[in-house]
Design a protein around this nucleic acid. Structure first.
Lengths: 136, 136
DNA sequence: GGGAATTCGTTGCACGCGCACTAGTTGCGA
DNA sequence: TCGCAACTAGTGCGCGTGCAACGAATTCCC
């Protein structure tokens, strides 16, 4: 009984932190034409292959971001339209698609990374589970 | 530098737990015609006023669930359409709207609460921050 | 008392998401 | 060699969400 309530409380804390942080990341990234999911993909791409021209399959990305394949597919299409990534056919397995970060995408990621980190520091570093109605 | 990476790691952990738990709650609740947000509202309503006929303003709900007013407004409309809540005019402040849990809504909440708690126990009770690629 | 500013809930609109399905490719066994 | 299952990525569709604008009611302040 108390254990259930404790779990509930913890869950609400996670919900609160997630909502506020996500919302803030969105707000900070929006002026740069990105959403939180967009950044997540860019970040994975930049982390996976720091060197120029590093490639990554869509399938590989699905496991690392919290999106369905369809959502990821469309998101990559938007990113490509904005010139941040490029899609190239995989010669070895013609079903697969290589996704590569363009120079522009890499630069944009480097530009907004500090902003995202600042939000994280502000939201997570301070307190991470305001138990009851602490702040607005 | 390391602090930033640590923050990033923690954030990814929160993201992962949130996504998996939320998704699982959705899956468990869906057969009962509810989504995670629906349950959240029902739960707040049931917690706020355990007694029959307890009322709550929409405005009051906005601060407790992580949704915009517009989303909440439509959600309540859906809940009302399903006969789980009722909207009545507030005589004192005619702008406001009282939201009351119906008998059916209260019963449904009592029915699915254990399911949600079970998911929470399974997702949160076990481990809450898988540092790196621990599980699928 | 009367008009401006504020608050409350709803609605028009566009967009991102997941589910189910499709098209194309590969691997395996008969 | 053929056929079938498994897999990869993309697409049609419906839906829930947030932003901005709106109408209605209230409060403030002169």
């Amino acid at each position: 009984m108390t254990a259930g309530a404790r779990l509930e409380e913890r869950w609400r804390g996670i919900l609160a932190v997630h909502a506020r942080t996500m919302c803030e990341i969105d707000r900070v990234l929006h002026p740069h034409g990105l959403g939180a999911s967009d950044f997540e993909v860019l970040d994975v791409l930049a982390t996976e292959g720091p060197e120029e021209g590093a490639q990554c399959r869509v399938q590989n990305l699905v496991g690392r971001v919290h999106l369905s394949q369809s959502a990821l597919s469309r998101l990559i299409a938007r990113l490509e339209k904005d010139g941040l990534v490029e899609r190239t056919m995989c010669a070895e397995d013609r079903r697969g698609v290589w996704v590569t970060l363009t120079r522009r995408g890499r630069d944009l990621h480097a530009e907004v990374l500090p902003l995202q980190r600042a939000v994280l520091a502000r939201m997570l570093g301070d307190d991470d589970q305001p138990t009851s109605g602490a702040g607005q």
